[in-house]
């Protein structure tokens, strides 16, 4: 027994030493950053924009290698992150609400909300409601009015049934007692063209996706707490009386059980990167609307998004 205790103490202290040595030296080999989408997509561009700044602020000659594992809407890469060794050498990009929505809709996923160490969420791209130029609907009030007269008749295009666009619309429906006919195009670009071509009257997308198309349709409102720095002339839904706060989130996570010191070191490097004006400028150019949430706050944000996904799925299942 004594021997056992002694051995345990030795082992524990040895591992603690190893941990602190690891911390002092971290990162001592290259860090893999798994991205669930092909090179050149929005999430990939975010990762590639942020990585060099994080390398710089981690010091130690840190090297981050971006590895694209596209497929199944990012599911394959996120699963790989969840199943990786929590040593700080495998990180991944993380998209909300998508990653959490998959855990509750019966998709075959091998991770849960507890499978990750939440590091930093850097992007919160709020939703906007837009209408075609010749629909005659140019304010939120007119839209809601029309929806109330004929429940379910007004068609709303969006990128997918289970994404942030849908969550924004469902929240609006619940807040205002309205009902819309939802049409999921594959992605935002075809949705946007369908509104411009008059094939659907209304669409929900993200604010970054309308900035280059401002004059092509009416933008009724944005679902952020305050007006977006991206387009300060768009009023919020909140100031028009509909309390809808929603968006597409992009951040960085690691597998659960990462040593606290390494997580803290990473979060601090992400924060310094976030505060770098050069990074902010690069993010804006690539259409990434920044907002900072890290560590436990990020975890709470994830829980909130999971709850919203459950609520929406319960009311209007997409599968």
């Amino acid at each position: 027994m004594k021997h056992f205790l002694k051995a345990t103490v030795l082992a524990v202290s040895a591992s603690m030493m190893a941990a602190s040595v690891a911390l002092a030296a971290y990162p001592e080999k290259e860090i893999q950053m798994l991205v669930g989408f092909s090179a050149g997509g929005g999430t990939d561009v975010m990762a590639r924009t942020v990585a060099p700044f994080v390398e710089k602020y981690l010091g130690n000659g840190a090297k981050i290698v971006i590895k694209n594992i596209p497929g199944a809407g990012g599911r394959i890469a996120v699963t790989a992150v969840a199943e990786a060794a929590p040593d700080g050498y495998t990180l991944g990009t993380y998209n909300l609400p998508g990653v959490m929505a998959r855990t509750i809709d019966g998709s075959s996923v091998k991770y849960t909300a507890d499978s990750f160490t939440f590091l930093a969420n850097m992007v919160n791209d709020p939703n906007v409601i837009v209408t075609g130029k010749n629909t005659g609907i140019d304010t939120l009030a007119k839209l809601l009015d029309k929806a109330k007269k004929e429940p379910g008749a007004l068609t709303v295009g969006m990128a997918a049934l289970s994404g942030d666009d849908r969550f924004a619309l469902t929240t609006l429906e619940n807040a205002t007692g309205t009902k819309f006919n939802v049409v999921p195009f594959k992605g935002t670009a075809p949705t946007r063209s369908a509104v411009m071509g008059g094939h659907v009257p209304v669409a929900v997308m993200n604010v970054s996706e309308v900035t280059s198309f401002r004059n092509e349709f009416n933008v009724l409102g944005v679902t952020s707490t305050n007006r977006s720095a991206f387009a300060p002339d768009i009023p919020t839904l909140k100031e028009q009386g509909a309390n809808v706060i929603n968006g597409s989130l992009r951040g960085f996570v690691g597998p659960k059980g990462m040593p606290a010191e390494i997580a803290a070191k990473l979060i601090s490097a992400f924060k310094k990167a976030y505060d770098d004006p050069k990074l902010q400028e690069a993010m804006k150019a690539s259409g990434n609307v920044t907002e900072w949430t890290a560590g436990d706050d990020f975890k709470a944000l994830n829980a909130e998004q999971l709850q919203r996904a459950k609520d929406v799925f319960k009311a209007t299942p997409w599968k």
């Binding site: 090179a39 050149g40 997509g41 929005g42 561009v45 900035t211 280059s212």
Partner: peptide
């Protein structure tokens, strides 16, 4: 994707 990497968002602008 190659355009996006260089900060060029498609659109009339």
């Amino acid at each position: 994707g190659g355009l996006l990497i260089h900060g060029m968002q498609p659109g009339p602008m």
